[in-house]
């Protein structure tokens, strides 16, 4: 990457966020908007820091729900993708059910889950997994179904058994697709956790904290909570992008990373 490109990549996003916050600040200040309707950005942040002792455990719960649900959903999604692609009968049997799961409004899923799983972490984890698994399944299925047929033929000529063909050729060939599903899932995961908290919480949670702040006309508290939720979503998405970056070096690099190299470096002849 050139120096200029690096600068653009780092400062571009920072600049756009700064501009957004400035616009927010100027609208509130110059528009003389009452503090119980919309806070200044700094007030929203201050509301988070000054209530952090209350918010920290709630944030931690939301993170847990997001991460557990996401991991469960991603694993289930990938597994289903493989099953659907490898067993044609399953495509007939399972596909309608998969569509059905996504047609159910997530909010309507909460009451039965609460009845079965109670008010703890579990119903939220299930809701997140419920949302996340679908894009992963579709992308894995797509990836596996579009592996070059000639490549599979070649493997057969080389005498590879079906399991090796799958592990050595089909799985890596589907990785690019897999990550597009994982990224879509990552953006949905926090939303799922918050919906879960709204619909299946009795005690304290970020979502209920926000709701009571809203009831108390504490705009800074409302916006502050939103900032926390958004931050969880962004950090999680970036983590997934980071894993993709490490797992698929061939998409950006012309040579293998040093520690992944199978061959000793060959010095060019002078």
């Amino acid at each position: 990457m050139t120096k200029k490109k690096l600068l653009v990549n780092i400062f571009g996003p920072i600049l756009s966020v700064v501009v957004l916050i400035s616009i927010w600040q100027s609208i509130v200040v110059w528009g003389h908007i009452a503090s119980y309707i919309a806070p200044k950005p700094l007030d929203a942040v201050r509301s988070v820091t000054s209530n952090w002792s209350t918010l920290a455990p709630l944030t931690w719960w939301t993170i847990k729900e997001t991460v557990y649900g996401y991991l469960a959903g991603a694993l289930l999604g990938a597994f289903l993708g493989v099953i659907l692609s490898k067993i044609p009968l399953m495509q007939r049997v399972l596909y309608p059910l998969l569509i059905l799961t996504q047609a159910i409004p997530i909010i309507a899923l909460a009451p039965p889950l609460v009845m079965i799983l109670g008010f703890g972490v579990m119903p939220k984890v299930v809701i997140v997994a419920w949302i996340v698994f679908f894009p992963v399944t579709v992308s894995v299925l797509d990836g596996l179904n579009h592996v070059d047929k000639d490549l599979l033929t070649l493997a057969k000529v080389f005498g590879a058994n079906p399991l090796r063909r799958f592990v050595v050729l089909e799985m890596p060939a589907a990785v690019t697709q897999l990550f597009s599903g994982l990224k879509i899932g990552a953006t949905y995961a926090v939303t799922g956790a918050i919906i879960g908290e709204l619909a299946a919480s009795s005690g304290s949670s970020l979502a209920l904290y926000q709701r009571s702040a809203s009831g108390a006309l504490d705009a800074a508290g409302v916006y502050g909570t939103t900032l926390i939720m958004t931050a969880i979503g962004i950090v999680w998405f970036l983590l997934v992008v980071g894993v993709e970056f490490l797992a698929t070096p061939w998409q950006r690099r012309s040579t293998a990373r040093r520690w992944r190299r199978g061959a000793k470096p060959v010095l060019p002849n002078n």
Partner: peptide, 19 residues
Amino acid sequence: LLVPWRTVLGNITLGARLK
């Protein structure tokens, strides 16, 4: 039919890997 995720060396040894 080179596989994009394997290096040149990895592609040359693909036959061995498949066995």
